[in-house]
Computed example of a mutant assay.
Amino acid sequence: MLDLLPDLCDHYEQDVRWLPLTSHDYGGRRLFYGEVVTLRCFEDNSLVREIVSEDGRGKVLFIDGHGSCRFALLGDQLALLAQKNHWEGVIVNGAVRDVATLATIDIGIKALGPCPFKTEKRQTGDRNVTLTVAHTLVYPGDMLYADRNGILLSKAKLDLSPFKAEK
Rank of each mutant, 00 (worst) to 15 (best):
residue 3 D to I: 00
residue 157 K to V: 01
residue 127 R to I: 14
residue 61 L to P: 04
residue 151 I to Q: 10
residue 23 S to M: 14
residue 78 L to A: 13
residue 83 Q to Y: 09
residue 115 C to R: 04
residue 150 G to M: 02
residue 127 R to K: 13
residue 97 R to Y: 01
residue 131 L to R: 11
residue 36 V to T: 08
residue 42 F to W: 08
residue 53 S to I: 00
residue 10 D to P: 00
residue 70 R to W: 01
residue 102 L to I: 01
residue 30 R to L: 12
residue 57 R to D: 15
residue 83 Q to P: 01
residue 164 K to P: 00
residue 160 L to F: 04
residue 94 G to K: 03
residue 159 D to N: 15
residue 35 E to A: 06
residue 142 D to E: 12
residue 21 L to T: 06
residue 65 G to N: 15
residue 119 T to L: 06
residue 117 F to M: 13
residue 20 P to I: 02
residue 71 F to V: 12
residue 46 S to P: 00
residue 2 L to M: 11
residue 93 N to W: 05
residue 106 D to T: 07
residue 106 D to M: 08
residue 93 N to M: 05
residue 93 N to L: 02
residue 155 K to F: 03
residue 49 R to L: 10
residue 112 L to N: 12
residue 156 A to N: 14
residue 114 P to I: 00
residue 23 S to C: 14
residue 25 D to S: 14
residue 53 S to M: 03
residue 121 K to H: 11
residue 127 R to D: 05
residue 106 D to L: 06
residue 1 M to V: 07
residue 141 G to A: 04
residue 15 D to G: 02
residue 102 L to R: 01
residue 98 D to T: 01
residue 19 L to S: 03
residue 1 M to P: 10
residue 108 G to H: 09
residue 131 L to S: 14
residue 13 E to R: 07
residue 16 V to E: 11
residue 137 L to V: 08
residue 53 S to Q: 06
residue 56 G to L: 05
residue 28 G to T: 03
residue 79 A to F: 10
residue 91 I to R: 06
residue 95 A to D: 08
residue 107 I to Y: 11
residue 145 Y to T: 02
residue 162 P to L: 04
residue 137 L to H: 14
residue 3 D to Y: 12
residue 57 R to T: 14
residue 90 V to C: 07
residue 149 N to P: 01
residue 33 Y to R: 03
residue 26 Y to C: 08
residue 79 A to D: 10
residue 89 G to R: 07
residue 96 V to G: 11
residue 33 Y to V: 00
residue 87 W to C: 09
residue 87 W to A: 04
residue 43 E to R: 06
residue 76 D to P: 02
residue 84 K to I: 00
residue 51 I to N: 09
residue 89 G to S: 06
residue 142 D to N: 15
residue 21 L to V: 10
residue 135 H to E: 15
residue 139 Y to D: 11
residue 132 T to M: 12
residue 57 R to L: 14
residue 84 K to G: 00
residue 7 D to C: 03
residue 29 R to C: 11
residue 75 G to A: 11
residue 120 E to T: 07
residue 33 Y to F: 13
residue 118 K to Y: 10
residue 167 K to E: 15
residue 78 L to K: 08
